[in-house]
């Protein structure tokens, strides 16, 4: 149980993971700009450091130096806490992501349930940001974002349950172990679950074709308009951390986690995760955006019935 070795192992891995999150967020911001630039046949950041790799550092320094403006009439506590409720759950979800054979802060028995529970708290943060800003349009943006996130939770959970049914366990490390023969994605039932998972996870983090809450430049300005400086940086970092989390979970559940020949587990895990992140970025810069009602219709009228069907077929096949 809690021996001293276990405790020190947990703490060191935890600190390493926290450091990794910070560096990874900065790297992802730079990488997104580079990927989007190359898709659009231009070059992206080139000046700050080799091919602009220190651009994120420059942006972070700029955001630190900005004035923190609080809108008059904003609900002080709610407005101040909102960024934390967006970032902290994402960081908490890293506690059960298996980076390698033993590189996992704590392999909980209820790993999948823990991750789902913790990432659902993000909705609160979004809604608090919308409400606390004392701005009609931020509120509308926050409500839409909250509705979108809640609607896409259902197919997300159903697809993850399909994997859990096949692996017979909720623990993340054991799910990776159950894929020692073949990756989950190669099984047709689970391939469909994987597709549904990636689609609903993209909608969960407000990215790609589902980014109405943050890219709405027509009338509603989005739930994080009234934030400047470091608080805005928190939202931004939260978004890229979320992106990493969903790709990491997809790797673990569907692509075999850290399993792979020759190279150590960590390298395989990172390669797979970053490939999925690349695919998500690629999708973002190709497709137009869905309208709000089409988004909700897609979730409730298309994804949810299909994931129920998938679950039923999985249950019947496993009997």
């Amino acid at each position: 149980m809690f021996t001293l070795l276990n405790l020190t192992n947990m703490i060191t891995t935890g600190i390493a993971v926290l450091g990794f999150i910070a560096i990874s967020a900065m790297f992802l911001i730079w990488w997104e700009r580079k990927v989007s630039a190359h898709i659009q046949t231009r070059l992206g950041p080139m000046r700050v450091g080799w091919h602009g790799i220190l651009q994120s550092v420059a942006d972070a320094i700029k955001l630190l130096l900005k004035e923190d403006i609080r809108p008059a009439g904003a609900d002080k506590l709610v407005w101040w806490l909102a960024p934390f409720f967006v970032v902290v759950p994402s960081v908490m979800a890293f506690a059960t992501i298996p980076f390698g054979k033993t590189l996992i802060p704590k392999d909980l028995n209820i790993g999948v349930l823990y991750i789902l529970a913790v990432s659902s708290v993000c909705v609160l943060g979004v809604f608090m940001a919308g409400w606390g800003s004392n701005n009609k349009y931020s509120l509308l943006g926050g409500i839409r974002a909250a509705a979108q996130i809640i609607s896409y939770e259902v197919p997300l959970i159903l697809s993850m349950i399909t994997v859990v049914m096949y692996a017979n366990t909720l623990s993340m490390q054991k799910i990776v172990e159950s894929q020692s023969h073949s990756w989950n994605i190669l099984h047709p039932n689970l391939a469909l679950a994987g597709l549904i998972y990636i689609t609903s996870a993209t909608a969960e983090v407000n990215r790609a074709p589902f980014d109405i809450p943050e890219a709405e430049s027509e009338l509603v300005a989005g739930f994080h308009t009234e934030y400047s400086g470091m608080k805005f940086a928190m939202f931004f970092i939260g978004e890229y951390t979320n992106l990493f989390i969903i790709s990491a979970i997809a790797t673990t559940l569907f692509f075999g986690g850290w399993k792979g020949p020759l190279l150590p587990g960590v390298i395989w895990f990172l390669i797979k995760t970053y490939s999925i992140i690349y695919i998500l970025m690629w999708i973002r810069w190709t497709f137009p955006r869905l309208r709000v009602d089409q988004l909700m219709g897609f979730a409730w009228k298309f994804l949810t019935p299909i994931s129920f069907l998938n679950l039923a077929i999985a249950g019947w096949l496993l009997l």
């Binding site: 630039a37 659009q40 046949t41 810069w285 190709t286």
Partner: peptide, 11 residues
Amino acid sequence: TFNNNFTSATT
């Protein structure tokens, strides 16, 4: 878009 990713930059 993937194909355009690997063309040289026009800028």
